[in-house]
């Protein structure tokens, strides 16, 4: 049952990815917002654990300045 559902979901995904741009773009937009929320959560957590902006930037693969500008004073 679960396998069938998974296969159905896969079918929908593949269909969505190469046919309807609205669906695909909507999914990307939702994913981006999810990533933003997760990033905020993790950065806050790292700060609480005493991580420096330098360390957080390195872990995220961005510069210290970029991560500081985006998350400081939140």
């Amino acid at each position: 049952m679960a396998g069938t559902e998974a296969k159905d979901a896969l079918g929908i995904t593949e269909g969505a990815m190469d046919t309807d741009p609205r669906v695909g773009l909507r999914a990307v937009a939702a994913l981006r917002r999810l990533v933003e929320r997760l990033e905020a959560l993790q950065v806050d957590n790292a700060r609480r654990h005493g991580w420096s902006w330098e360390e957080i930037g390195t872990a995220l693969g961005v510069s210290r300045q970029a991560v500081h500008k985006k998350h400081a004073r939140r």
Partner: peptide
């Protein structure tokens, strides 16, 4: 404004992500 709602959950499901 940044909260993810049911429509987002539906869109993410299409990517195989369970919000």
């Amino acid at each position: 404004p940044e909260a993810l709602d049911e429509a987002d959950a539906e869109a993410l499901r299409l990517l195989g992500i369970d919000l």
